[in-house]
Write a protein that binds this DNA or RNA. Structure first.
Lengths: 316, 316
DNA sequence: CTAGTTAGTTGACAAAGTCAAATAATTGAC
DNA sequence: GTCAATTATTTGACTTTGTCAACTAACTAG
C-alpha cells in the first residue's frame, strides 16, 4: 500500500539554505508556542524542569539520578536539591540499589497521584490548543511531528525496499511521475498521457518472465520505480526510471537500472534500449556508467516545449 | 498542478488522542533538541533571551520596548535592564520617538556587526545539524515545519478551491482514491481497476456540457473530487465522490454534490442516480440531505470481501 | 487643567542555575 | 587484600535570571 510524496521541489532551484532557514524560523516560533503551552505542567506549582524530572521518574521507574542528569542535561547538584524537595513533599522515595552509590527513585502513591493528575491536565490543555484543527489536520500534524522528530533525532531512514510491482502500484507511479515532470520541467499533458499509456499497457500486456516492473518503497511511501518491457524477442526496453527527491543520492536509481539489466540478461535479450531526455542528468549518468551509449539524439516538441531526447543502447 | 496527500488515516480508528500525544511527545523532544541547538546564539556570551531580543531589534528597527515585551512575553523590568546593558556595550542606541514616552531602539554599527556575526554562526550551526539529511529530506523537513507552524499558529487554511477538471487531474484522483479505499476499507484490486476505468473512460468519452468533473484543491494539494457522467439522455450518474481526510467536516462533499445536482438540472437531465456503499456513512448522509432516496440494496463480493452497496436516485 | 493611562525604569527580592569541593561506594591493578 | 582512580550523589557558596510592585515621565480625553 504505497503512497507518494508529491510536494516535490524541482531539480533546478533547491534553495540551499531553505531548510536551515525553515528550522531557525520554526525554532523561534516553537519556543514562543511552547511557552504558551505553559511553563511546564500547567496549573501546578511545578516549574518546567521539575515537571520533566517528574515525568522521567514516572516513566522510567526506578530511575537513578545519573540517568535524569543525562537525558535532561540538568546540573547534578541542582537535581539533587529538587529531588530532596520531592522527597520532603512525599512524592518520591529513594531506595538502595545493587550499587550502593546509586539511590534509585520511585514515585510514592502520592507521587503517582500527582503525576497522573498533571498528566491529565496537560493532555487536556494540549488537546484544547488543538481543538481548532479538524481531525484530518490533527492526523496530518501528528504524522509530520513524528517525521520531523525522527529526522532531527538522526534516526537513519531504512534503505528503500525494492520489490516487483503489484496491481495497486500503477496509479501511484503514474501520478507521481506526471506531477514531478510537470512541476520540475513544465512538461505538459502529452507527457502525462504517455506515462499513463505506458503503465496501463504494461499491466494489460504484462508478460511474466519477459517483463518486469520494480518499485522502491519505504514506510508505505513510493520512492522510485522502473519498467522493463519487451520490444521484440531480442530487444528489451527500459522505461520510466524514476527516483523521488526524498531518496536521491543513495544509489537507488543505479540499483533499479541494475535490476533491469540483470533481468534482461537472464531473460535472454540481446540488447537493452531506452529513450530519455538530455535534461535528466542523473539518469543519464547512470546509463553511461552501465555502459549504455547514445545511438541517436533528436529534439521534439511533444511535451509543450522543445526538448532534446536521446536513444540509448546497451548490448547484453 | 495538484498533488495528493496519501498518508491517510483510516476512517475507523482515528485514535482520539493521537495528535495530543504526538504534540506532547514532540514538545519533550524539541525542548531537548533546541537545547542542543545551543542556549541562544551559540558561542556568544548571549543568553537565549538576549539573543532573541537582539533579533527582534535587528529585524524590526526601529522598535520600541513595548513591542519586544509583547512578542517575546518578557518582563518589562527585565527587558529594561537588558537594554541598558546593550546600550552600555555600545550595541544599541535609543532615540526619542514622536511619542516621548517611547524610546525607539536601533542597532549601532557595532550592534549590526555583532548581529550578523551571530546570525552567520547560528545559521552555520543549524546547517550542520541538518548536514546528515539528504536534500530531499531537507526539503521535506522545511515543508513540514512550515505546515506545522501555520497550523499551530492558528493560521486558518483557506477553503479548498473547487474547479472543473483539467487533463493532469485524473492520475492523481485515481491514485488517491485507490490508496484510500485500500487503506481504510481493505478493498482490493477490483476497486482500483474500477476507479481507473471510470476515470480513463471519463477522459476518453468526455462530453462537454453533458458531463463534468470537479476538483477541490488547496496549495496544490488535491482534497476532493466528484464526477457527473451521462447514463442516458435522461439520466445522469454521480460517481467517485471523494473528500480527503484533511478536508472533511467543512461541507466540501456537500458542495461537490450540490454542483453535480445544479449541473444536471441545468443540462436538462430528468434524474440523477448513483451507486455507493453502506459503510460510506458521511457520503450517504449528504445524499440523503439532498433528497436522494435508496432504490435498491445489494451485497457484492467484488472488492475482496462482502460489501453492502446501494443504488440511490434523485428526481430533478 | 486634571484624572486616568501608557511606556519605560528602578528597587527589593525570590527563584533558578552553576561550580567546585566533599562524601561514599565501587572498580581495577598490583 | 590494599590502594589509587573512578563514579554517583550531595553540599556550600555563589551568580544569573526573572518577578513584582512602586515610581517617573509623557500622553489622552473630557
Amino acid at each position: 500500500m504505497p503512497s507518494v510524496n508529491l510536494h516535490l521541489p524541482d531539480d533546478h532551484a533547491p534553495a540551499p539554505h531553505a531548510a536551515t532557514d525553515a528550522l531557525r524560523r520554526f525554532n523561534r516560533f516553537y519556543t514562543r508556542f511552547a511557552g504558551v503551552l505553559g511553563p511546564g505542567y500547567m496549573g501546578s506549582e511545578l516549574s518546567l524542569i521539575e515537571a520533566r524530572i517528574l515525568y522521567e521518574i514516572a516513566t522510567g521507574q526506578p530511575v537513578v539520578s545519573k540517568r535524569i542528569v543525562e537525558t535532561l542535561s540538568v546540573d547534578p547538584g541542582y537535581l539533587s536539591r529538587i529531588l530532596r524537595r520531592f522527597t520532603q513533599l512525599g512524592w518520591i522515595a529513594r531506595t538502595r540499589g545493587a550499587d550502593a552509590r546509586e539511590h534509585p527513585i520511585r514515585l510514592t502513591a502520592a507521587g503517582e497521584a500527582l503525576f497522573s493528575q498533571l498528566d491529565r491536565t496537560t493532555a487536556a490543555s494540549t488537546s484544547a490548543t488543538l481543538a481548532h484543527l479538524s481531525p484530518g489536520e490533527q492526523a496530518g500534524l501528528a504524522e509530520r511531528l513524528a517525521w520531523i522528530e525522527a529526522r532531527l533525532a538522526g534516526v537513519p531512514l531504512p534503505p528503500p525496499a525494492v520489490r516487483p510491482w503489484r496491481p495497486g502500484d500503477m496509479g501511484l507511479i503514474t501520478a507521481q511521475q506526471a506531477v514531478y515532470y510537470r512541476n520540475a520541467y513544465g512538461w505538459g499533458d502529452a507527457m502525462e498521457v504517455l506515462i499513463g499509456e505506458i503503465t496501463s499497457r504494461f499491466v494489460r500486456d504484462f508478460h511474466a518472465g519477459r517483463e518486469q516492473c520494480w518499485v522502491a518503497e519505504r514506510h508505505g511511501e513510493l520512492l522510485g520505480s522502473v519498467f522493463l518491457v519487451a520490444e521484440s524477442d531480442e530487444v528489451a526496453r527500459l522505461r520510466l526510471l524514476y527516483v523521488d527527491a526524498a531518496a536521491r543520492g543513495h544509489g537507488l536509481g543505479r540499483d533499479l537500472v541494475g535490476r533491469c539489466i540483470a533481468f534482461a540478461r537472464e531473460a535472454g535479450y540481446a540488447e537493452l534500449v531506452l529513450w530519455t531526455h538530455t535534461v535528466l542528468a542523473s539518469a543519464r549518468a547512470i546509463y553511461a556508467d552501465y555502459g549504455f551509449t547514445i545511438e541517436k539524439v533528436e529534439t521534439h516538441d511533444e511535451f509543450g516545449k522543445p526538448e532534446q531526447s536521446e536513444h540509448w543502447r546497451l548490448a547484453l
